[in-house]
Design a protein around this nucleic acid. Structure first.
Lengths: 191, 191
DNA sequence: CACCTATGCCAACACGGGTTGACTAGCGTG
DNA sequence: CACGCTAGTCAACCCGTGTTGGCATAGGTG
């Protein structure tokens, strides 16, 4: 929709900075990740980061744009919602954790108010609507979505961030079954 | 058991430092909490903190000693384990969050490896044994304990740290019922 | 070619933070 | 009293970090 600005010669550098920033923010969280380290990873001078992204806060905002890409509820058997959702996230986390902004945000949200605020927004914009579409009673949708969040964020935290042995070592299939059952109950079970 | 060392005149100051440290670490996490701020809260000079606790890492270690005080499984009806456990933690979080080291550790574990490591130890030392005592099959105990951790830490994160509206606003009773059912299934349900 | 803008580096500033060491006041004991 | 130990302050060091401004250089354009 926005008319694309003319391509600049520095586009490659911009992209490289963003790549490095995502990796550092994902690995270290907002505070520990330093502009200098990001610049070094990108192979350029720290001042370039400032020129292209203004300041650290804006760089973080640019680096962390979370799209959950939740599967369309309409195309899923109603009794498979839980398993499908859990499988979706486990698959998402299988590859390079660097490029899952959700994990970056989760890490940073523990100590950074801005990150926490953005995580709440994502919940409201991307999770709550799905719950609303799926839940039997719209009045219950918010609570149900919240319960799902406790389980899914807890899973993300234990498996990907804390690396709690039994959870980190479990096979995806196993988790899909057991955690999926919980999510399913939170979404469609009797409240 | 350890022979108590003779009381020193500085004991009050030591305690005050610890109190301030707990509050700051709880509010800000390990990195954002500064020695200077802790010292100011305690009404003394930063160098005193170093004298009495060595360095920031050791101060953190001293400030954050987590005892979950899990209720004795033997005294609880087998089918009320989940609800009892959830109620136990909700009650724990009701008061001043400053004095729940678990929340402090959870906050810091997201970005600090030492904190994460200690959280894993607490899990192994205090949670896993309970699961072992309660679970039908000892071979499954570790996984079951891990699943419980995903749900309980997720609840702590969403309610106390992220303050996700639907979860933060929910009444304890409601959470005890729904989350309790999940924990119960993880502990004693069919795997 | 001459000019100008975009791109990049370098050096430095300002600030905050952990940490250190010298120095001072209080208190008890021989 | 004199001595020594303890509790505490003060000032400074040293490092890392976000951020800034000036300078060089390269590409494109008249």
């Amino acid at each position: 929709m926005t008319s694309t600005p003319p391509p600049r010669r520095s586009d490659a550098t911009r992209a490289e900075i963003l790549r490095a920033a995502r990796a550092r923010f994902a690995a270290d969280g907002y505070q520990r990740a330093t502009i200098r380290a990001i610049a070094a990873d990108a192979g350029i001078d720290p001042s370039m980061v400032m020129r292209y992204y203004g300041n650290k806060t804006q760089l973080f905002a640019a680096a962390v744009d979370v799209h959950l890409h939740l599967p369309d509820a309409a195309g899923i058997p109603r009794d498979k919602l839980g398993e499908t959702l859990v499988a979706h996230f486990l698959k998402r986390w299988e590859g390079d954790p660097t490029d899952d902004a959700l994990l970056t945000l989760l890490r940073s949200a523990a100590t950074d108010d801005d990150a926490a605020s953005r995580l709440r927004e994502i919940f409201a914009a991307q999770v709550a609507p799905v719950a609303l579409a799926v839940c039997p009673d719209p009045a219950e949708a918010a609570l149900r979505a919240g319960l799902v969040a406790t389980q899914m964020l807890g899973l993300a935290f234990c498996r990907q961030i804390l690396r709690l042995p039994p959870v980190a070592a479990a096979t995806p299939d196993l988790l899909v079954v057991h955690v999926g059952a919980t999510v399913q109950r939170y979404l469609t079970g009797r409240l």
